[in-house]
Design a protein around this nucleic acid. Structure first.
Length: 431
RNA sequence: GUGGAUGUAGCUCAGUUGGUUAGAGCACUAGAUUGUGGAUCUAGGGGUCGGGGGUUCGAAUCCCCUCAUCCACCCCA
């Protein structure tokens, strides 16, 4: 009976595993450069955890199940609730600021399409306990640090930044009721994703005054914070939010990544829990879905039963990233080594097989990556195998060993080889 | 949940208006090469042509159903 893989999942054969490791290793290295420390949680949690902030509709997008104790559980679709739970639990003991990162494997029961799968990896970094936009700037800078490190430039990717706090203040100024904001965010978030007419129609449905709708449209087209006062009068709250945003950009300048950042009023994020700076990083052409997104969520810990502690962070999935890296030629199938060996031990005589095995074992004992051939076939064949396994050195156990106890040690890069006494080979550390 | 496209070897794909035993390249295995690596040549293994039904003397090819995948909607933490 032939069983196929589940929809939206990937099999990581060695070549694909090399790609995954390339991406994940880069994420971890960038996190560590940025002073973040790694954490992880369980891959499933109580279903309720994901309903708290997102409601019941989200259940359809989750893989959920009931265990034998009738507990309603779900495979994690994101790790932020887990982070909130874990931090809340030890909030009084953890030194602040809390700068944590994780690379969780996540599952969402959505229909797969380009750049979106049902099982994927997502890099998360979060800074908890810093009530200053400096932390927001650092999250963006760390994300860009990673992307720059892969070779992507400001011509390839752009960080679009805005502020929920500013948006909320401006909307209130033009007469939008506070309780209306939550329904408006997901609509405004669609600004660049749907046709203008459809966008207007959605706004008209929610807002009575067409004048207000026009003002919102003008506001959403703003590409510099300086244009805002021309459209909406700034009250104190709006002014504070605006100053904050300017400071984010000032910090990004100091962090050396400002050339990849720009203000974009259309970045809203569909999620309700963002309270301040919000951002997304897109490919410069804007053809792919967002590479990464995040923002400040000051109420999340308290929403999960903890104290009111501020937080900001972001998530970056592997699917879109891989597509972009391949498009830009920064990741090709043969750019990654699937295997690397320090030594390959070739054996040319069945009588010497025991010795070849023993030599390999000694190399491994010394901590080297070593492999040997199960067959004593033509040396050419074994050399080929050594080459395909990316061996740095090849040791040949053959006639010289039989006659005078010598091994041929060949450097695969230079092609040079020398005879070495097997008896003394392991006395000094071979290279 | 809606719409479109595509399913032939491990991979990428040919396959004529329906015609005999379904092919190529790459990959894999072995040999040419009995002791030296991305080369060349030769041979070999590997396919219920996604599955089921129908039309026909005859179906990879035409029709119906079904399944799967991809792409675009919906959604997007």
């Amino acid at each position: 009976m032939k069983i196929q893989s589940v929809k939206g999942t990937r099999d990581f054969y060695p070549p694909q595993m090399a790609v995954r490791n390339f991406i994940v290793d880069g994420w971890k290295a960038a996190s560590i450069r940025g002073g973040f420390v790694e954490y992880d949680g369980p891959i499933f949690e109580y279903l309720q955890m994901y309903q708290v902030k997102s409601g019941d509709e989200i259940v359809e997008q989750l893989f959920n199940f009931t265990d034998r104790g009738n507990r309603h559980l779900a495979i994690r679709p994101e790790i932020t609730p887990t982070l909130a739970r874990m931090v809340n639990k030890q909030i009084n003991a953890l030194p602040r600021p809390i700068k944590w990162f994780s690379v969780p494997r996540l599952c969402r029961a959505e229909r797969p399409q380009k750049g979106r799968l049902r099982e994927f990896f997502q890099w998360n970094i979060d800074i908890i306990g810093v009530d200053d936009v400096l932390a927001d700037a650092e999250v963006i800078a760390c994300s860009l640090d990673y992307l720059r490190n892969t070779g992507l430039t400001s011509a390839d990717v752009v960080a679009k930044i805005s502020s929920r706090r500013l948006l909320a203040a401006l909307l209130k100024n033009i007469g939008i009721a506070e309780d209306k904001l939550e329904t408006l965010y997901p609509i405004l978030d669609k600004k660049t994703k749907i046709p203008v007419e459809a966008f207007c129609e959605m706004l008209d449905k929610e807002i009575d005054s067409s004048e207000t709708v026009q003002t919102i449209l003008k506001l959403m087209d703003v590409h510099s914070v300086d244009e805002i006062p021309d459209i909406v009068k700034l009250d104190e709250e709006a002014q504070i939010a605006l100053d904050e945003l300017k400071r984010v950009f000032a910090y990004l300048e100091k962090m050396g990544v400002a050339n990849g950042c720009r203000f974009d009023m259309s970045i809203v994020r569909g999620l309700a829990y963002y309270t301040g700076m919000v951002f997304e990083i897109h490919d410069a052409v804007g053809k792919l879905r967002a590479i990464c997104g995040g923002g400040r969520y000051d109420n999340l810990l308290s929403d999960f039963g903890g104290p009111k502690v501020t937080a900001t962070g972001m998530g970056m999935g592997d699917a879109v990233l891989e597509i972009l890296l391949r498009e830009k030629g920064l990741l090709t199938d043969d750019s990654l080594d699937i295997q690397k060996l320090d030594y390959f031990v070739a054996c040319l005589d069945d009588d010497l097989m025991d010795e070849a095995v023993a030599i390999t074992a000694k190399l491994r004992e010394k901590g080297y990556a070593a492999n040997f051939s199960y067959k004593t076939n033509a040396l050419k064949k074994q050399m080929k195998v050594a080459d395909s396994m990316n061996a740095a050195q090849c040791i040949i156990v053959g006639g010289e060993y039989k006659e005078s106890g010598q091994l041929v040690v060949k450097d695969m890069a230079t092609g040079e080889q020398e005879l070495v006494e097997a008896a003394t080979f392991f006395d000094t550390d071979p290279v």
